[in-house]
């Protein structure tokens, strides 16, 4: 049995831990609100861009002049994965979930004989993947969401992806990230960036005669050539926003759990402490009494 002094030290250390975790929970909660607002504010742009692109892409599909970003390179030998995780830990299963999903995807692709390249956004993703796939990781971006996710940061990653695509370094690009559902639920999502997956609805409405005929300035190809790279940036940006909100949500619930566990532990330890103290007092009394009786 631990001595009283040990127990006291233990209790006070758990109390300190609880203070830290509850402070972290509070910080995460306030960051979550901001990240959530940012994620929601970014949605209109993404929605409208998707609508435009759906319209355009629907009419371009199957045509010879379609840009490569839309039609693909005609092969799928080399896959590029963009893995979006947090820079920091202590957020429950957030990073491991993404990493596990990415790892499964890499293994599947490799089993199918494809070549895989990885871009890590967020330090934790690299830490988790480098044990198995160190040679596949091309680059790691850190601190992209430190002051909230910005479009410039997402654009930086997008430019890298686009320049690699132009150089013919990969055929298919997929981003793996946590989609924000609520503060306690994040869903690991895979989304294909390149070639652009034409929404099924848009492709269908193309046949219908009722579809509005757009005029294009300068031309369909010209607009597409502009819009497709923008779309890559935008998709990455929204993944970054969703990831940031998810991270804060995950951290908040992880820290909430930790705080509750620390509370339970303090209760248990206090109980043991009190029992031990009482036992010691009783023992001393017995000693005194039996000493007095012996006289």
């Amino acid at each position: 049995m631990a001595s009283l002094k040990d127990l006291r030290a233990r209790i006070s250390s758990v109390k300190n831990t609880r203070k830290i975790t509850s402070a972290m929970k509070m910080v995460a909660a306030s960051k979550l609100r901001r990240a959530q607002e940012a994620a929601e504010a970014g949605r209109p742009y993404a929605e409208r861009m998707e609508r435009m692109l759906g319209n355009l892409a629907g009419s371009m599909v199957g045509q010879a002049g379609a840009p490569k970003l839309l039609a693909g390179t005609g092969k799928d030998a080399v896959h590029l994965l963009v893995v979006m995780t947090a820079d920091r830990g202590l957020c429950g299963g957030f990073n491991t979930n993404v990493a596990r999903n990415a790892r499964n995807l890499i293994k599947d692709l490799q089993a199918a004989g494809k070549q895989v390249k990885v871009l890590c956004v967020g330090r934790k993703g690299r830490d988790l993947l480098k044990r198995d796939f160190a040679s596949l990781i091309l680059q790691t971006y850190e601190g992209l969401t430190r002051r909230g996710a910005t479009f410039e940061n997402a654009d930086m990653v997008a430019q890298k992806v686009l320049s690699m695509f132009d150089a013919g370094e990969f055929d298919v690009c997929t981003v793996v990230y946590n989609k924000f559902q609520s503060a306690i639920a994040q869903v690991v999502t895979r989304q294909q960036l390149v070639p652009f997956p034409v929404p099924a609805v848009a492709a269908n409405t193309n046949d219908a005669a009722g579809k509005a005929l757009y005029e294009y300035e300068p031309s369909e190809e010209g607009i597409l050539a502009d819009l497709l790279p923008k779309n890559v940036s935008m998709q990455l940006f929204s993944a970054l926003l969703e990831g940031d909100a998810s991270e804060q949500g995950a951290r908040m619930s992880a820290m909430d759990n930790a705080t509750r566990n620390a509370g339970d532990m303090i209760n248990k330890l206090t109980l043991v402490y009190n029992r031990t103290r009482q036992a010691a007092i009783t023992k001393e009394l017995i000693e005194i009494i039996s000493g007095a009786e012996a006289l």
Binding site: M52, N55, L56, Y214, E215, Y216, E217, P218, I223, D226
Partner: peptide
């Protein structure tokens, strides 16, 4: 300010996409 010149959009404008 469209890439091929400014254009004004009024109600009932024909559908168009422009940079």
């Amino acid at each position: 300010p469209g890439s091929e010149g400014n254009f004004g959009a009024l109600p009932q404008h024909a559908p168009m996409l422009s940079t």
